[in-house]
């Protein structure tokens, strides 16, 4: 039994199976396990990032946590309440931004969309217009508020989704790819808005494909692959998990096996991955300590006139790719 107070989100062994049927007389049932035992804890007042490739189960998990889908197994609690049993209690306290081109009434104005949802969320009539004005200003959509949504660009629709998501002042906000389709300036403003919501005490559950966004916003994140959480920690700890926060890249026209073996034995080297990179070969060397650097790599790879070696910080993208590829194997 999960506790009622405590974390904003807590899941234990959450599974979700989808069944699709084909045929009329002889039904062919296809079963897909979108989530296979997800355990997750998200603290209140934080931004939690969920990363994963397409089809990993991110949207399924988001929908379960926001009461739009029932899990087929396990237990999921949001704000201490079971998402299956206490949906009525949770819904006024949850904001959901699924984003994209759909999900809005295109033939009416942005303001009328917000008025409609303000009423469905029971926002007091005396507050409604002022609240709508405020959220429109926050997402920088005030000047277009009275235009029909069908005239909006994709980015403007995304902003309207966001405005709707925060209109009723939720305690927890689920954001599924919130900056997709936004220009860089708008995306930056959206990230600023997300940070300001956390300052206001809102818990944010964010799914994104943009690694820099997750790295910038999320102190804690999880990587979901094939319906399983393959890692869950801070970005720094995840770097260590995949072999260190320093990455050296060496590029030349082919390396010998003995050279790779030597590299693997250098101090602090945790991983050496070889990949074809056009006509050249690239070695990605993950290093845990300071002892091994560009000079050491050059020293053990003599005889490559065209050799280039550079050092960079292990990015979240490296972490993500390592973990997802490992899971795929």
């Amino acid at each position: 039994m999960l506790a009622r107070d405590g974390p904003a989100i807590e899941t234990r062994g959450v599974t979700r199976r989808f069944e699709s049927r084909k045929g009329f007389l002889f039904r062919d049932i296809t079963r897909t396990d979108a989530l296979q035992g997800v355990d997750l804890t998200v603290e209140r007042g934080s931004i939690f990032g969920l990363l994963g490739p397409n089809g990993a189960g991110k949207t399924t998990l988001t929908k379960i946590l926001s009461t739009l889908l029932l899990p087929t197994g396990g237990e999921a609690r949001v704000l201490g309440h079971d998402v299956s049993r206490d949906a009525d209690w949770l819904r006024p306290r949850i904001g959901l931004v699924l984003g994209g081109e759909r999900g809005l009434y295109n033939r009416v104005s942005g303001r009328d969309n917000l008025r409609y949802f303000a009423d469905l969320y029971g926002i007091p009539p005396v507050e409604r217009e002022a609240r709508i004005r405020t959220v429109l200003e926050r997402v920088d959509l005030s000047t277009a508020a009275d235009r029909r949504v069908e005239e909006y660009s994709r980015g403007m629709k995304q902003k309207l989704h966001l405005a709707r998501g925060i209109l009723h002042r939720p305690e927890i906000l689920f954001l599924d790819e919130p900056t997709i389709g936004l220009d860089p300036k708008s995306a930056r403003e959206t990230r600023k808005l997300i940070r300001s919501l956390v300052v206001d005490g809102v818990t944010i559950f964010l799914t994104t494909h943009y690694m820099f966004e997750a790295e910038e916003l999320c102190p804690q994140l999880a990587i979901l692959s094939k319906g399983r959480i393959v890692a869950r920690d801070s970005v720094d700890n995840l770097r260590q998990l995949v072999g260190g926060d320093r990455t050296l890249e060496a590029e030349a026209y082919g390396f010998e096996d003995r050279e790779l073996a030597t590299l693997r034995h250098l101090p602090g080297v945790s991983k050496v991955v070889e990949e074809e990179y056009g006509p050249a070969t690239r070695l990605t060397i993950r290093v845990r300590t300071e002892e091994t650097g560009v000079d050491e790599v050059r020293r053990v790879l003599p005889g490559h006139d065209e050799l280039s070696v550079r050092e960079r910080r292990t990015s979240l993208e490296d972490v993500y790719l390592d973990l997802v590829e490992e899971e795929a194997r």
């Binding site: 929908k63 009434y105 295109n106």
Partner: peptide, 13 residues
């Protein structure tokens, strides 16, 4: 068709 069924059902109403 509009994709508004999800946000509508997700509201408390």
């Amino acid at each position: 068709e509009f994709g508004t069924l999800e946000p509508t059902l997700q509201s408390p109403t």
